[in-house]
Design a protein around this nucleic acid. Structure first.
Lengths: 228, 228
DNA sequence: CGCGTTGTTGACGAGTATCAACTATTGTGG
DNA sequence: CCACAATAGTTGATACTCGTCAACAACGCG
């Protein structure tokens, strides 16, 4: 119950709707549906028609892209509050996989865009969200092109630390597995594992369990994350 | 003179203005200026105000991004016909450097966006162009994350082959230097050089001069370009 | 023609992938 | 709730790729 209120807050305070009036929000509510998604299923697939857009209320998602030869590149991980499905194309350019049982707000794309046409605030918010996708991808590009394995892992931990909800920036909940991390950072699972071991040995992080990591030396982690 | 006609053609047949009426084009012309840029100078810098947008008529540009630590990631190379400066943000997320004396069409951003608001065709074209930037970046991400040095070089050659104007898909004009290629592919100049040598030895390309390469085995090149 | 810049090649070492064995964790049925 | 199996993660040995440093070659320009 307390969690449900927190979830609603996440919805209304999402960057996407920041600055919208009560009336606007009611119109949004008119073409919005709630959706539950089980971990292990897909929200939508690469190349499917982009009929809807989504806000993640709770749970965790993963954006991935598969090449012709079947190899996967993980593009991003989604936290509550994130907006998914803003695409300039009519088709999605990636698949969205559910890592943890999720609750989403689901908007009809055409209604959404139409409202955005009339509402400069929303329009601007959407534009900025889209821009952030590109900025993020460019940062990732830099990480893959320039950084070493353990620096890439720091980059991920730094990102997760900033984005996860709640006030605790130290304890990081790794809701993805090692293969997902590897495919995100352009590494193998073994190298990712070794990177964690190295960071642990150097006293920068503490690994409580494979999916629960604490940042011990935040500054050193940040330095490594933005190295090169 | 003949070249000038060709350049005009490039402007009017640009994907950006595809499907626009004569009247629309006249309005576009109203807030459009011609601009010449010397090789070695910047069209605009990262973080500068995005007041204008551009179409490249002739010459060659390079999109790059610099990290806090001063390291450079080349994002893309621009050919005649390409649209530059579509950004969701108010600031540019990258710098644009002129590799070869360029002729550009230069639009006032606000007028441009305002017309786009009224004109669904143009709006759609802009949206698609923006989408292509993301798609391209995602492809590059995949290349950096998954491919080997010589495969990345093939990926670049394949791209250049597809995009360069003219009918000759075999002879490739490398208007950037080895450092630019290295920073685009996340490699060092030595590795890039060795990759060219290997492809030459394997009979896939012929290197007429450092900036002039012929594709001998197109199929093999494509296979390597899309490997993994 | 000499000089600076750009590109190539070689030797070597650091870093990452691969293969394999092992350990920890999670899930399932009794 | 436990035992066991299946899955996920870690560690070690080794090979290969790529980066680094250094020398050399080719090109462009005054």
């Amino acid at each position: 119950m307390i969690q449900d209120i927190a979830q609603q807050e996440t919805f209304f305070h999402s960057r996407l709707f920041k600055g919208l009036s009560k009336e606007d929000m009611q119109e949004v509510a008119g073409f919005t549906k709630s959706k539950r998604l089980k971990a292990g299923s897909y929200l939508f697939r690469q190349h499917s028609k982009a009929t809807h857009a989504y806000t993640l209320i709770s749970g965790a998602l993963m954006l991935e892209r598969t090449s012709q030869s079947g190899r996967r590149q993980v593009i991003d991980f989604s936290h509550p509050g994130n907006f998914i499905g803003i695409t300039n194309n009519d088709e999605f350019e990636f698949s969205v996989y559910c890592l943890r049982d999720a609750h989403l707000q689901c908007y009809v794309r055409n209604n959404f865009l139409e409202l955005a046409d009339r509402n400069p605030v929303l329009k601007n918010n959407i534009r900025r969200t889209g821009s952030n996708v590109l900025t993020h991808t460019l940062d990732q590009l830099f990480a893959l092109g320039q950084k070493k394995a353990h620096e890439r892992v720091c980059y991920l931990l730094h990102e997760l630390s900033l984005r996860q909800s709640g006030t605790d920036r130290e304890t990081i909940d790794l809701f993805m597995n090692r293969q997902d991390i590897a495919d995100y950072l352009g590494l193998t699972i073994e190298t990712v594992s070794r990177a964690f071991s190295k960071l642990k040995k150097d006293g920068i992080i503490a690994v409580d369990s494979p999916h629960r990591v604490r940042i011990v030396e935040h500054e050193q982690l940040d330095t490594l994350a933005s190295a090169r």
